[in-house]
Amino acid sequence: MAPDDHPPAAIVCAGLVKRFDNGMTAVDGIDLTLAGGRTTALLGPSGCGKSTLLRMIAGLEEPSIGGITIAGQPPAALCRQGSLSVAFQDPCLLPWLTLRQNIALGRKLARLPADPATVDRLIDLVGLGGFQQMRPAALSGGMRQRAAIARALATRPRVLLLDEPFGALDALTRRQLAQDLPPLWRHAGATTVLVTHSVDEAVMLADRIVVLSPRPARVLADIPVPLDWPRRPDLSEAPAFRRLVQTALAALVRGGERSQAVAAQ
């Protein structure tokens, strides 16, 4: 997969606030600049508003206050160019299409020419070779999620957004994909944002971890992950890895305690 002609796309979030119609504030004042071509993990407790933040970056939600630019453009512009892909928490495969058609759908929707070779390669890469003609109903939850990731990658996006990408996967597959996928999006020069509540996953996959508070989401800590690529599975035993996990975990715990104290008042 050759890098695109475009330079890496930086994502800039300025003064982001998201308040829903029912008065619930999901995101409360987030300023972030995500360097192009790097992978950032948004780490936070369940329901903290990290998915809402991701949806705003994807152009699916409008911020109530503040704004987002990607490579100097609004997210919707990148969507229209077909250079932004989202892998949703729900694998979101269309039940009447075969696995292969579902993965090819990404390119179709992005109005890119069909590219059977890339599609087949991705299918093999996520370990679904031999299942091309199956319908989603016949696949396991983990297989569907891998298909969704393959669909997102099929357009060679400049921006790749992953919402709990490994949520439904078993430990073995999770380990395998954590090994196989980052080189793909890194090589393509994609700016990747992934939402997760697993500290180990954040350290393993990202160049940088942004720890978010319980709802409404604010930035609690911004932790660089200076581990070398490629990262092997046994890296998770290394002292440097464990120290990063401890740092991120400590930030999460502090945030949880603070919000409980606020709630108690």
Partner: peptide, 13 residues
Amino acid sequence: PQVWFDLIRSYGR
């Protein structure tokens, strides 16, 4: 389901 429409919209369609 709503997510299917999100998928379409995420490609700017």
